[in-house]
Design a protein around this nucleic acid. Structure first.
Length: 595
RNA sequence: GGUUCCAUAGUUCAAUGGAUAGAACGACAGUUUCCUAAACUGUAAAUUCGGGUUCGAUUCCCGGUGGGACUACCA
């Protein structure tokens, strides 16, 4: 069924055509919720039509209001304020809606069909030389939430991870371990694998700098020293050995990467993240080369004297971009050409979303152009979800200066805060241990996830550790708390939804406002899907929870005077709780029944 | 230098070109014999500056100022 907004738009379209003979597009009819200070439910902005009617805004609105009152039975009254036509919608519409929504377990969600769009979302994409940090967390949470939101929109979605498991940076931690590790392993040191390897990456940098300054003291030029430092030469040698498949190197590489994977798996599990497929760069880094060579043959690319191959993107306002090095090896871009092709053909996907920070805007712009140049029609179906950087209150994160927020530390701090908060409130005292821990975990992660996801992905954000552990106000736990309160009331009522009957009841203002907000939910899920923005869901849930708390405070549900009133309020509370739970799930946040 | 993104209360965030720019935190003042006070109510507080387009601009365009990113035979 169409929503009341869509029905109204159509009716207004017809009205305008009848009165003026003009046919407008449906998007030109702007319907918005009536502001609280005015009488009415929905408001039509009539300014755009004044010319068609040849009247001033008030007259136009008056005329349209009168006609709607006759033509459209659900409109029961109207008033005009300046160019705004405020329409009152029949209460039955809202009550029927509430009743139907409460019976719909999939309310707001679209089920996948045979011909659903197939999409792939790539996110996380870590390097295997250091543990995950706050920057990765924004990426991972966005990717995971987007995946959930797209699925809620009825699409078939593959969540994929591309692990950057090879290259000089990986060799750096390998050589440091080999030289200074003395056989240290996660088992014998008790360190989480990714942290252990990360420590050796740091160790490499330490040694490297020491060696460089020693060389400089001996009178060597700094740039030369950076190229001649013994440990750097050893790392390079290791990379060559790796590419040659030298068994000892490969074995070390496999061993250390497996430590890292075990560490990552723990972090992903803590965050509640799952991938459908994991790609490894060591298996894909050679892809794309043949497309580039073909492109060269067909005259779409250029080759320099040193044999390197380039795409000329200057006609599109970009520079020239290298696709194959002079030694014939692939670069990042080459690889991306190959993997994109592979994914579109292997999985028959219709669209591909890359969750990658905005510092790579240029890269993706170039990638699309190069793909187009090479004649791949899927170039237009790549979407770069470009998100802003995460900054700390005292400036940007700098891994070289150790100014990073470690993902595991962050999660541990959240858990501790949630635990303390639960101890203070004393509400979870009667929960069994396992359930208690699960709840603490859900609350802790809600705080973290909501804090990050509520911000528009496109924008840079400031991560304040202090504010992130606050569970009051515009936070994940606040929304969860509202849900838990609702479940408490529903439990105490002793009634199930299908036992609730909607009689003759006239909702008060707060109740009506809640119904309307619930009514908006399906449209917001669509909007969040179309714009790839979990923030839309987050902001909505907060205002919904806020509105419910206002209602909850003002009116008693279980002690309502009349039975019809009680039934109505229970149904409203039940449905609000359901929307909160569904909405939180789209953000990857759980909704405990008690907290 | 070139390309590009951003600028909203003290702070962190909202606002498909629409009515008096919303919240949260912080500050100040209140609300528990009442379904979970992780809640609710109230007060003070903001669109970087200058032009333009429009019935109407935080939003679109031009310029200034301030900040970020990119501009590697790194990924």
């Amino acid at each position: 069924m169409n929503t009341i907004e869509q029905q109204l738009q159509l009716a207004i379209l017809n009205l305008i055509q009848k009165s003026t003979g003009n046919t407008l597009a449906i998007e030109q009819i702007q319907i918005q919720p009536t502001r609280k200070e005015f009488q009415g439910d929905l408001t039509l902005v009539v300014f755009p039509f004044t010319k068609l009617f040849g009247k001033n805004p008030e007259q136009t609105a008056q005329e349209m209001g009168e006609k709607l009152l006759v033509d459209f039975p659900l409109v029961t009254a109207f008033n005009v304020i300046k160019g705004f036509l405020n329409l009152s919608i029949h209460t039955d519409y809202w009550l029927n809606f509430l009743h139907e929504a409460s019976r719909d377990s999939q309310f707001g969600l679209i089920s996948p069909k045979e011909d659903s769009r197939k999409m792939m979302v790539e996110f996380s994409s870590p390097n295997t030389n250091k543990p995950l940090h706050l920057g990765h967390i924004r990426n991972i949470l966005l990717g995971d939430s987007i995946t959930r939101i797209l699925r809620a929109n009825g699409h078939k979605v593959y969540a994929v991870n591309l692990v950057n498991d090879r290259g000089i940076h990986i060799c750096k931690s390998m050589i440091a371990w080999k030289e200074y590790g003395q056989g240290e392993t996660p088992e014998n040191s008790g360190k989480k694998g990714d942290h252990l390897v990360g420590d050796f990456y740091v160790r490499y940098d330490m040694e490297f700098r020491k060696q460089v300054s020693e060389l400089v003291e001996k009178g060597m030029d700094k740039e030369l020293a950076e190229r001649e430092a013994p440990i750097f030469l050893k790392a390079q040698e290791m990379l060559r050995n790796w590419e040659l498949g030298e068994p000892e190197t490969i074995q070390l590489w496999k061993k250390m990467n497996s430590w890292v994977y075990a560490g990552f798996d723990k972090t992903y599990a803590d965050l509640g993240i799952q991938f459908d497929t994991i790609y490894y760069e060591s298996e894909t880094y050679k892809l794309g080369k043949e497309f580039v060579l073909n492109g060269l043959k067909e005259g779409k690319l250029e080759q320099l004297e040193d044999q390197s191959i380039w795409a000329d993107l200057t006609s599109d306002g970009l520079d020239k971009k290298i696709l194959l090095r002079s030694d014939g090896t692939s670069v990042y871009m080459t690889q991306d050409i190959g993997t994109a092709y592979q994914r579109f053909t292997d999985f028959h996907i219709d669209e591909h979303v890359y969750v990658v920070g905005n510092e790579q805007n240029y890269h993706f712009q170039a990638l699309k152009l190069v793909l187009k140049k090479l004649g791949f029609d899927f170039a237009d179906r790549l979407f770069h979800l470009s998100y802003g950087m995460v900054e700390l209150p005292d400036g940007k994160m700098k891994s070289r200066e150790g100014k990073v927020v470690d993902a595991d530390d962050l999660i541990a701090e959240m858990l501790e805060t949630a635990h303390q908060s639960a101890q203070e409130s004393e509400k979870l005292g009667d929960l069994p241990e396992a359930e208690y821990r699960q709840t603490i975990h859900q609350v802790a992660l809600a705080a973290l996830k909501y804090f990050i996801l509520k911000v528009d992905p496109k924008k840079n954000m400031t991560f304040s550790p202090q504010e992130s552990i606050d569970f009051n106000g515009n936070t994940g736990p606040f929304i969860q708390y509202t849900h838990a309160r609702i479940q408490s009331v529903v439990r105490m009522s002793g009634k199930s939804v299908d036992q609730l009957v909607l009689g003759d009841y006239l909702p008060n203002e707060l109740e009506l406002s809640l119904i309307k907000m619930i009514h908006d939910f399906p449209a917001l899920v669509k909007e969040a899907g179309a714009s790839l923005s979990p923030a839309i869901i987050g902001n909505y849930l907060f205002s919904l929870a806020k509105e419910f708390n206002r209602f909850y405070h003002e009116y008693s549900i279980l002690k309502a005077e009349l039975e019809t009133e009680k039934h109505f309020r229970l149904l409203l509370a039940y449905q609000t709780g359901k929307v909160i739970r569904t909405g939180l799930a789209l953000l990857g946040i759980g909704a405990p029944d008690k907290m």
